[in-house]
Amino acid sequence: MQIFTCPFCGPRDEREFHFVAEQGKVRPDTTQSVSDADWAAYLHTQRNEKGRVREVWMHTTCDEVFVMERHSVSMEVLATTALRKEST
């Protein structure tokens, strides 16, 4: 099992985590007109890169959602970033 680092809890077994999405997708403003192509891209298009990837993960143990940068071939974890600045 891999070790992922939750920004709050620290390093934990990968089974405590769940993949959420590729990082970088912004939800279109659906109160305005959104084209079929834009909406389809938001729903379905993935970059699916080989190598460095930036992903949104959830640490389901504490529910923290964060960004993890990984290498999709070597499985190395490159960086873990909280969505928000530390408050304390």
Binding site: F8, C9, G10, E16
Partner: peptide, 10 residues
């Protein structure tokens, strides 16, 4: 040796 700020665990 591996501290954690949370006591939640699987």
């Amino acid at each position: 040796e591996s501290p954690s700020r949370s006591v939640l665990r699987r």
